[in-house]
Design a protein around this nucleic acid. Structure first.
Lengths: 192, 192, 192, 192
DNA sequence: GATGAATGAGCGTTCATTCAT
DNA sequence: AATGAATGAACGCTCATTCAT
């Protein structure tokens, strides 16, 4: 097992356990055991549990971003871009349910709130940029309803999160058709 | 202090502390202290901390239900009923941010998942009934899009949760106009 | 076992273990076990291990103080007072070797240094008062050598500490005669 | 870097860190880092941390010994020899506060107690020899009080340790005059 | 010889739960 | 019914020591 391997095993183990049991339901010892390393080893790569949680979030965002941008064209019509990116997002959630469950926990915790607060104040690089751009442009061209960006975002993001969770928990099954119809409904919500 | 009084103090204290600090950030001793009772007393009314968490949820739903149904008329047009109930819901969240924060945590935890699983399987009384009825009828009359009820629910619920949280966290301010526009957007999402 | 009993068992256990093994050689679990209580119980009486260490020191000083002042007369000649208090001190160390070993560790650690620093700056109540008085008066009356109080103190305290330790470790045996001769020698050191 | 160089860097680093932070406040990794070597390297030269601590003590004594004997003449009068050696000792402590702090910690720990026990039983070479000789001869010639050597030693050593510590901690300033007066006072303590 | 990533026993501390009063 | 002192398993984290390279 080479050095970066070990870090990956830890990250993967943490992802799975945090996703399944929540942050405080997954002790460091359990993460270490599942990763096949000693507890101390985790602390070679992550200063504290908090750091592990935050870096995991960052890695996930970095992994998700290119996934969302796949096939995305800056100059395509807004509607197309909307469909493209939200379909990608929902597919991503479905394809990587662990990531989704993790991110949900993250944003629903002091970690995520702190993160959003920072993000909404200073404008950081990362996921929101492309979403922000889309909504700004759509508002400017009067394609979208006259609502604050935060609410427009909520109208599209909110249902997707709910729907993805329901799918993962088995309460509904999202095939391609259903995904498309769902995104369509979100589009109806935001478009003028 | 009569018996049910004590129970109420405990419930209120638990609500506030869970809402503010999360389930594992609120020790039983702290709950007892704020409620003005001994720790042991809590265990007279609630077998374990888990039971307390679940019963708190149930009480909140029971409190919310009449609030939502205020002014609700079974025989009103579907659109009106939709606006009525979702506006009530969003107002409730805004008016009782503690309740909202609590419920959010609850549904975003193993407690809530278990609860929903039970609810969606067997047919329970409770909140979803009136929503279910609304969506069933709306689908039947072809007012709503041809989507599974779970997804229709998500299209209206999802944004409301997101938007309520953003309001409580101070990321956006929801006044009456904004609430109305938001519900309108949700209506656009579900209506055919 | 009544409530204050428990605290006493803890204090006694901590004293013995700190004296024998040093602060970091005596884990809280070991202290609890020897005291016949659960670990958590210690934390009912002492906020942290540091607090336990500091309160133990304070209790010891409070216990020692009346012991030193036994038979001490403010208006006796300086020489008599000197003999009285230093004989008492040495006897105390010999009679309570645990206390001595504990205090030695305490003053030889960041805890003790911090304590002395505070004491030498602001003038606190406690042990040093009577010693200080003695040296001030003795200097004023030109009974003592013309040296800073800190050094006069060292000339009497230093050998006593060394000698007490040697006695406790069994390197020398201090009977009454030997104690008297030792104090006499200290007197020769400080007197003009 | 030649082999003995590495050992020296380790020893120096250990001295500084033990002196500043105490034995258990100075992890092996920290010692290695400051020495500019790998942790494993320390274990090439010292079997365990305990061995490192003990060998460090031995090296310090070996360094101190010639320092004390500087200008010391076996055939000089006892008084002169006394002044010579104790002045040297106090100067050494002041000039090498790191050494002093280290030695203080050492003698105030199980390490030091074990060391002294061995020394007082068997007859070892080292520091005490010249002190022992001095006190034996002084007692024989009736220059010193009729006290066991251990106590005579304590009467001179004790104040010096206390006074050196107070100087290093900044509680008093020892210039040449003060050093001389202090040694004088010690002489008064031991001389008949 | 030299390294430093890896280890896991052991630390100080917390907190859901119990039970004698 | 009501209490809160008492408990100890379990937590996050540290660090002396090892060993493959």
């Amino acid at each position: 097992m080479t050095k970066p391997d070990k870090r990956n095993y830890i990250v993967q183990s943490a992802l799975e356990l945090f996703a399944k049991h929540g942050f405080h339901g997954a002790p460091m010892t359990m993460i270490a055991e599942r990763a096949g390393v000693g507890v101390g080893t985790i602390y070679l790569y992550f200063e504290t549990k908090d750091v592990l949680i935050n870096e995991l979030h960052q890695e996930l965002e970095e992994k998700m971003y290119p996934f969302l941008l796949n096939g995305y064209a800056d100059n395509a019509p807004i509607r197309r871009r909307f469909f493209n990116i939200y379909t990608s997002l929902l597919r991503y959630f479905i394809q990587f349910p662990l990531d989704f469950r993790y991110l949900e926990q993250f944003y629903n915790s002091p970690y995520g709130v702190a993160f959003r607060r920072v993000k909404l104040m200073g404008n950081k690089t990362g996921r929101s940029d492309v979403f922000d751009e889309l909504f700004e442009e759509g508002t400017e061209w009067q394609v979208f309803k006259d609502l604050p960006p935060v609410i427009l975002l909520a109208l599209a993001f909110g249902p997707l999160l709910t729907v993805a969770r329901d799918h993962i928990l088995g309460f509904v099954h999202l095939d391609d058709t259903m995904i498309d119809r769902t995104i369509n409904a979100c589009w109806d919500a935001v478009r003028r």
